[in-house]
Amino acid sequence: MKTALAQVSLSALQHNLAQVKQMAPESQVMAVCKANGYGHGLIEVAQALNKADAFGVARIEEAFNLRAAGINKTIVLLEGFFEAKDIASIAVNHFQTVIHNEKQLAELEQAATELEIGIPIKVWLKIDTGMSRLGIHVSQVDEFVSRLQACACVHPDLVLMTHLACADELNNKYNQTQLMAFKQASSAYSFSHSIANSAATMVLDRAKQNWVRPGIMLYGVSPIEGETGLERNLKPVMTLSSQLISVKKVDANTPVGYGGTWVTPSKTILGVVAIGYGDGYPRHAKNGTPVLINGRIVPLVGRVSMDMITVDLGCDSQDNIGDKAVLWGAGLPIEKVAESAETIAYEILCQLTTRVKWKYI
């Protein structure tokens, strides 16, 4: 009997990349595959997305793993480097790096005097236009550009970038505030620009500059609140499934699970699925969270356990032990599961554990 299985469709990944290119036909595409390819497998994702123009990662270890796997495309460190000693490795491996603070800039300048770097490092200068996370203040742009172009180990052709805080909220006026701030900060330069994440790629034409940086949409998930990826012609890449390991008839007023937090309102048939928070299924999934069994949606009932969940199959159920249960993916959008667990699809995808078996098709 098979238990937790994550099946990853590489053709769905490629389909979703093609959708990005249709949405932003004038832009180059940086496929963001940080956090182990949003939980889908870093190397497998990058190999499948070989028509992307670059890959974006958060940690230099992820970049090393891509190079070791023979990925020769542009790799951008989206958070930059954390230690000065990484600069030499960035140069040797032809990585590109984001610069978002004074410390990183000073360390690049110091490296220029101490290291022999044959090929200058390509730098993406991040400007904080209102996210208040990473990035230099708009008033610092001229100084940073001047110093970077004077730095011997930096390629003179920079990329200017920013990140939108509310792109996933349709008609949020703050998006226009940030776009205007970026335009004012960057208009004096002829460098390439990059603004759009997945949400902006979908809905904000002004954000589709020289580069777009899709992440979650590549994996078939819409970042727009209230939507699923299917509504944007995206295909779910991961389908997580397991099987029924118990089917039993119970009477009305039967408490279910730890604490008896759910009680059967009438006679019914309960099923137990071999999946739990030990596999990465969200523990805080509420009663009613959808599970797909034999072509129909049935509700999760009772608390999620480490290894099991219970579902209400209904009094007329014909389901049997061994039947497949889909927790999300084909036939059941992960956005619906995330909503019931009061979280986001990003988190659910990234938290699967090593107990889950993987299959790439």
Rank of each mutant, 00 (worst) to 15 (best):
residue 200 A to G: 04
residue 257 G to Q: 02
residue 235 K to H: 13
residue 225 E to V: 15
residue 223 P to V: 09
residue 194 S to K: 01
residue 185 A to H: 09
residue 260 G to M: 04
residue 217 M to H: 02
residue 238 M to H: 07
residue 262 W to M: 01
residue 260 G to E: 04
residue 206 R to L: 15
residue 217 M to I: 14
residue 271 G to R: 09
residue 218 L to Q: 06
residue 202 M to A: 12
residue 241 S to V: 10
residue 192 S to R: 08
residue 189 Y to M: 05
residue 204 L to W: 12
residue 184 Q to H: 12
residue 244 L to M: 06
residue 257 G to T: 00
residue 200 A to P: 08
residue 179 L to E: 09
residue 183 K to M: 04
residue 191 F to Q: 05
residue 238 M to Y: 00
residue 261 T to I: 11
residue 190 S to D: 14
residue 182 F to C: 08
residue 258 Y to H: 06
residue 187 S to H: 13
residue 244 L to R: 00
residue 211 W to H: 02
residue 226 G to S: 11
residue 181 A to K: 11
residue 226 G to P: 12
residue 249 K to V: 09
residue 228 T to Y: 07
residue 273 V to F: 03
residue 201 T to C: 13
residue 228 T to M: 06
residue 178 Q to F: 07
residue 212 V to F: 09
residue 265 P to A: 05
residue 263 V to L: 09
residue 265 P to Q: 01
residue 230 L to D: 12
residue 260 G to R: 07
residue 218 L to H: 12
residue 226 G to I: 12
residue 232 R to T: 03
residue 180 M to E: 14
residue 256 V to F: 02
residue 232 R to E: 06
residue 244 L to S: 08
residue 249 K to A: 14
residue 192 S to I: 03
residue 264 T to C: 13
residue 231 E to T: 13
residue 213 R to W: 00
residue 250 V to S: 01
residue 208 K to H: 06
residue 256 V to G: 01
residue 259 G to M: 03
residue 199 A to P: 01
residue 216 I to R: 01
residue 255 P to E: 00
residue 196 A to G: 05
residue 252 A to Y: 07
residue 216 I to L: 15
